[in-house]
Simulated scan of single mutants.
Amino acid sequence: MDFDQPPVMRVEVVPGPGLEDRHWPMTIPAVAQLAREGLDLPRGVTFLVGENGSGKSTLGEAIAAAYGLNPEGGSTGARHRTRPSESPLGHHLRLRRGIGAGRWGFFLRAETMHGLYSYLEENGVGGEAVLHEMSHGESFLEVLRTRFDSPGFYCLDEPEAALSFSSTLGLISTLHRVVEDGGQVLCATHSPVLAAMPGATVLEVGEWGYRPSRWEDLELVQHWRAYLDAPQRYLRHVLD
């Protein structure tokens, strides 16, 4: 028996009250596909790439919650809450965990980081009060430096929102180190820079559900290439 397995091997939906087919989030094609087929998560890094509203963050958030992570971010055991906004999907997921894998994890969610910083400050965890005194990007980098340091399951929701181009490259380096140390990563992103990480699995999320994709075939990459090649072709439609 293989005891060297990733923290999460497979995700499945358990039907029940509160998760009806005709109601959100089951009306999202990616969530409906998850309910039909489940999702196998490989070792290393998996990127969920898609437009706003495609369901990539809904999937990532629910899987993080099913793993036992706070929907508003933080490591295993974090309990801070502000305004609940997550879908009920996390309560209906069953995770097949890897035998012998660690249980530690961290959910990095861009839109709720301010609340996480306040929680850490109020509980005196590691002197994180300085995070509120940093820029948005600097505080993100500090979290990456101090929290992404153990084998476990790392779930990230659009981390590039706070990062410059060079800092995004630094995030790739951090994720590479996490994987080298035995960690597993699931990341929802709009960033073609992140999605280009060598060796990563890329799932394109959209009206079709989710499907494996090569980086160069992603709609995201094709749009960015076309825009950078001739931005006025796009801007004249926006400005007119």
Rank of each mutant, 00 (worst) to 15 (best):
N70K: 03
A65C: 13
P7G: 13
G68K: 01
E51A: 08
E51V: 14
D2Q: 07
V179F: 07
W215T: 08
R43G: 02
L228I: 01
D149R: 11
A161P: 00
G199M: 09
Y210D: 06
N52I: 02
F47R: 11
H132Y: 01
T146L: 14
P198Q: 08
E158L: 07
G60R: 00
H92Q: 00
D40S: 04
S191R: 07
I28Y: 07
D2G: 09
V185R: 00
V221W: 00
P42H: 03
A226W: 00
R214K: 09
A129D: 13
H114S: 13
S57W: 05
E37G: 02
P29C: 10
G105T: 10
E142K: 05
R43F: 10
Y117D: 10
H190Y: 06
G105P: 05
M26S: 07
W24P: 08
D157P: 11
E61A: 07
H80Y: 07
L186W: 00
R81L: 12
P151M: 11
T174A: 15
M26G: 03
R214N: 13
E122T: 06
H92A: 00
E207T: 06
T76F: 05
S135N: 10
G115P: 00
I99T: 12
S150A: 10
G55E: 15
E180T: 13
S167V: 05
V179A: 04
R43P: 02
Y234C: 01
A62G: 12
H80Q: 05
L89A: 03
F47I: 15
V31E: 01
W24I: 12
L156M: 11
E51H: 13
L41S: 01
G16M: 07
H136D: 15
R79A: 08
R22S: 13
A230F: 04
G98F: 08
G77Y: 02
E216T: 10
S54M: 06
Q5N: 07
H136G: 15
V179E: 00
S213Q: 09
L89C: 04
D229S: 13
V13F: 02
H92N: 01
Q222V: 12
R96G: 00
R83D: 02
Q184A: 11
R97N: 10
V238N: 06
M1E: 10
V14H: 06
M26E: 04
A30W: 06
H136W: 09
V130P: 08
E72C: 10
W208V: 11
W104F: 07
L41G: 01
L95N: 04
E158K: 09
P231K: 06
W24T: 03
Q5K: 10
L120W: 14
L235G: 01
H176N: 02
L34F: 10
E122C: 12
L141K: 14
W104A: 05
L141C: 06
G38Q: 10
T46E: 01
L220S: 12
G209N: 02
G102H: 06
Y117V: 09
L194N: 09
G182V: 14
S191V: 11
H132D: 04
E20A: 11
G90H: 13
Y234E: 09
G126L: 05
E61C: 14
